[in-house]
Design a protein around this nucleic acid. Sequence first.
RNA 1: GCGGGUGUAGCUCAGAGGUAGAGCACCACGUUGCCAACGUGGUCGUCGUGGGUUCAAUUCCCAUCACCCGCUCCA
Length: 487
Amino acid sequence: MENTMEKIVALCKRRGFIFQSSEIYGGLNGFWDYGPLGVELKRNVKDAWWKDMITHHDEFETPPGAPQSFSMVGLDCSIIMHPQVWKCSGHYDLFHDFMVDCKECKARFRADHVGSSECPLKPSKHPGEHDKCQLTPPREFNLMFKTYIGALSGEEGAAFMRPETAQGMFVNFKNVCDTQRVRVPFGIAQAGKSFRNEITPRNFTFRSREFEQMEMEFFCHPSQSFAWYQYWRDRRYNWYVNLGLNSTRLRLRDHAQDELSHYSVGTADIEYAFPFLDQGDFGELEGVAHRGDFDLRSHSEGKLVRDAAGHLTPELGPDGKPKYPGSGKDLSYFDDQTRERFLPHVIEPAAGADRATLAFLCEAYTEDEQPDDSGAMQQRVLLKLHPRLAPLKAAVFPLVKKGGMPEFALELYREIKRAGIPCVYDQQAAIGKRYRRQDEIGTPFCITVDGQTIDDRTVTWRDRDTLEQRRLPADRIVEEIVNRLKT
RNA sequence: GCGGGUGUAGCUCAGAGGUAGAGCACCACGUUGCCAACGUGGUCGUCGUGGGUUCAAUUCCCAUCACCCGCUCCA
């Protein structure tokens, strides 16, 4: 089914979910715009996340599987931060490579790894050692977007647009502790744009250069950190399942030891088998990482590296001082109950909002066959989106444009809108076509006003997935929609 | 960054060196009483963009941009 993805991309464009950025100018590789329906869908994804993380969190109750109760707070940091943030986080070095291409064998090597890389041309060992090798000079690859602060764009004003939202939460750890009366364990959550100069943006919105993240940093006592890691890993996986990714296309995968980042002591990915991937391949939706005390230490002492004994210590420059000095601020936490001072460990569930949105779209895309008015089977395209995620929750139709039906339907439509529920009114074309139009954009409920409505104020409630029809009093429609949105 | 493919109406696509077509969609009117209805009428394109060859280019050539596939990359 390699063209399933093409159909989804075409549907996204045709119905106004996702457009290519700057399309009238020929498009821009790696950038995408969300249309009128897409913005609703993606906002619903982010809202679901924010509400489940922050708004609906009960800090007095211990959730199932959690070691204890805890607090959650939100944050919204600037996209451009002090350049030192990225030096201490490790992004500056790791995202900033010099690469060498060989024009003969079409291979690319990191400039600092040429001596240890293998040249495809035998019998030479390393790139550049064979007579045929044609290496380009080292070229700079900046994986972070560089920008300039101030109207005079000199190098002294150079800065970067954040490649992740996480650092804003580490940098504000002390501010949150000092102002919010929170106690460890607690989490800080943030959703927002991030930017990475991906070498190969591809696969629709999956790998974009501008994208949105939903990240949370959970600060806990080191002795409890592994229990919290397991809690968040399972809880985040179930979040996707409960919102509709409940097929075998979703999986939770623990990283192997050699796959772990330089700072991580445990990481699990929540992955989805996107239709654009090969059979058996999965793409990352969210990474849940046990980051230890790497981040708070780095922003305090300076950028850390692992020494010969395997311990994290500040990386030193030629002068014997930290290569990238930290803030020098004490970011430890004092527990006034246990009289203990410690540097909290961090569990980080970091999700891609665009990737989640795309996964929900892919999972929802369904083709089935339903009989038309003459009983012949016709193909139907529908998005089986969870009602919480659907851009529109309901559509109201008059069965035909006469007999007072449009007036009644319009009034019902307005009542639904006044309740704050995204809804459309449509009296165009035949009733069957209107149902199908809504199916294609994932509207879960259609309400039809007919002749009987005028007599007894009941309407037809039609379900997107089952096509089932029920008769309900018009006055109970808003209540019914609200109830269905809670499940 | 490399190699291959693609780019024509909102969508799916046809087309030929002589200045563009179909189906669907969309809009109007009428009809239509629950799952992509019917009739009549109507709107839509600088043929991805820029340049070249030619009397004439959407068609041939070059470049460029975007998308797809493969390689490379992916803290």
